[in-house]
Design a protein around this nucleic acid. Structure first.
Lengths: 337, 337
DNA sequence: TTGAAAGCGCTAACAA
DNA sequence: TTGTTAGCGCTTTCAA
């Protein structure tokens, strides 16, 4: 159906090799150039990358595997990845695995069969084997957001512990002493690190953190809402809240709204990732923003370097700093101070 | 580097054809089966889909092109698409074009070069040529969310006009007579349709819609916030609000929160798409939900039918009904009734 | 600068 | 059931 390089050869009377060479930036005599251009246009020829990839053994494609296409955190990074990779001529093959380890393995296999030249993955678990198989084939792999036990890969993530420590320290500095934590599921690396940061901040100031104020959420809107409600119902309630991901921050914000809690008048809140909330609430809620764009860029650079053979040797681990947009935080309400 | 079917042939002493046949579900003698399995395992062989695609002239890949990877509306549909397509053995090649017509064209060309067997696109504009070129090659195309002038493709979208009409009629039935509209940009099909539905509802009841209550937003959080604020500041303010997309609904909700407007006590609100807000506010805000999953499924079915040649003939246009989750809407505040 | 020819990994007649 | 062979569209020596 579609025109091939053969058709162009026939139309122009030139050989396959000449057409191919010209198409790949080689030089041909001016009249030939014109003839090729004309034939390409007339035939509506466009290169078949599948065939090219078979021959060159490079697909010029990078596989990108994320937990969920509906996860803005993930897709924002993908967006930045794609941007950078495209500038170097690579395309991205984006897959999600719906938080499902079985699917994760399947997709990994699929990407391998598609002959990706590199892989960027935000891993769940149990994909160590699949990753190693790719690496054995010489396909460089970059991990995002989390590490994988038993996998020696370049890794790019947010310095979660430091981000959490600074966020909580900010609240402590304002005078808060009862800071509710809406954390993530125990055992999940990002959640553990953010919890550690919360504890670090308290420890650094010699303040006892009341364990009753620490909630382990499920990283979804509902648990943010539920745990915030529970914290608000405590007697006495905390004077501040630290919420550690995008979805739970929205949930918590809504719980506060329902109860007509004024931020930061009645309660200071530091959320996570939800830039929209920061933009929209007045005074703005303080939000820790992970460096999504930078993560994508760093991962791309690492991968491009590895694919080009410019970088060899031991895997690197990049912990990028988060930043916090200030919000209108104040100290605890008068009755507390 | 990676093992090929040749290696398996050598290891087993069988021919390429036998291996290939077995790998594609053919029958071989039991001892041969065992030998192949063993060799595959030992070599870590996995099929090279690039090569297979070249031979079969089918990539078993569907291109998916959306305006933005960070657009939850789009990625939710993609998620459902992928789910369905995968069950039929197809993989999806997801691209976004960042709301950029140039990029849109480039990605379309890219997908064509990748030999996709079908395309699902949420189009922006000016892609009619690219789409036609694919169709000429025999690649079926399904449009999402919007139609494209000059393109005869199957199309799946929400019945926006009806959804808007019903949402607004609901408010009118409750007794509201001044209903603020936070609409989308004029000229954008979905925005125009939703505006038309708003007007329909008024017309059907013979009620004059005050043009001052109609705002044209930019489909982003900020404009939802700004226009909601402006409407609230009017004298007299509307008693109800209809907001027509995901981002603006969040913006409007936040504006209401800031001003301590109680929903639906002081103001009834019907939003759009933002399921999270519905789940999280109490009483829940009424939200029009587009049938994301159904859109994805319908688009997949159409595409699969076309790709399999099971469906031929004129393109179909599917307008799927939205549904509205109720919220706690009431009539206008007492002073108004 | 151009062309002939081989071959990337795989599948699909066709023959045995 | 198995094997032989040709060739998908392209790139890339190597020779002309």
């Amino acid at each position: 159906m579609a025109a091939t390089i053969k058709d162009v050869a026939r139309e122009t009377g030139l050989s396959l090799a000449t057409i191919s060479k010209y198409l790949n930036g080689g030089h041909v005599l001016e009249p030939n150039r014109a003839a090729i251009e004309a034939a390409v246009r007339r035939l509506g020829y466009s290169v078949n990358r599948v065939a090219r990839g078979l021959k060159t053994r490079r697909s010029m494609t990078v596989g990108v595997l994320i937990p969920d296409l509906e996860n803005v955190f993930a897709t924002s990074i993908v967006s930045s990845l794609e941007d950078r990779l495209q500038r170097s001529g690579y395309s991205t093959l984006v897959c999600d695995y719906r938080q499902d380890p079985v699917r994760e393995r399947e997709k990994l296999e699929f990407l391998a069969e598609r002959q990706v030249d590199g892989l960027v993955i935000m891993p769940l678990a149990g994909c160590a084997d699949g990753i190693r198989r790719l690496q054995e084939r010489g396909v460089p792999v970059v991990l995002l957001d989390r590490t994988v036990a038993g996998c020696a890969c370049d890794t790019v993530l947010t310095d979660n512990r430091k981000a959490a420590r600074e966020a909580v320290d900010h609240l402590l500095r304002l005078g808060h002493r009862r800071i509710g934590l809406i954390g993530g599921p125990a055992g999940i690396q990002t959640a553990d690190e953010r919890l550690a940061g919360y504890l670090d901040a308290h420890a650094a100031r010699g303040i006892d953190a009341d364990p009753a104020l620490r909630m382990a959420g499920a990283y979804d809107v509902e648990s943010g809402h539920r745990h915030a409600s529970a914290l608000l119902a405590m007697e006495p309630p905390p004077t501040a809240l630290f919420v550690v991901n995008h979805e739970m921050t929205l949930g918590a914000a809504m719980a506060l709204v329902e109860r007509q809690v004024r931020i930061p008048g009645d309660m200071s809140v530091v959320g996570f990732d939800h830039r929209d909330l920061a933009r929209v609430m007045t005074p703005p809620m303080s939000i820790v923003l992970q460096p999504l764009q930078e993560i994508g860029e760093a991962a791309s650079e690492l991968l491009l370097d590895r694919m080009a053979g410019r970088r060899t040797g031991a895997p690197v681990l990049l912990r990028l700093p988060a930043r916090r947009i200030p919000g209108g935080s104040t100290g605890p309400p008068q009755r507390q101070s």
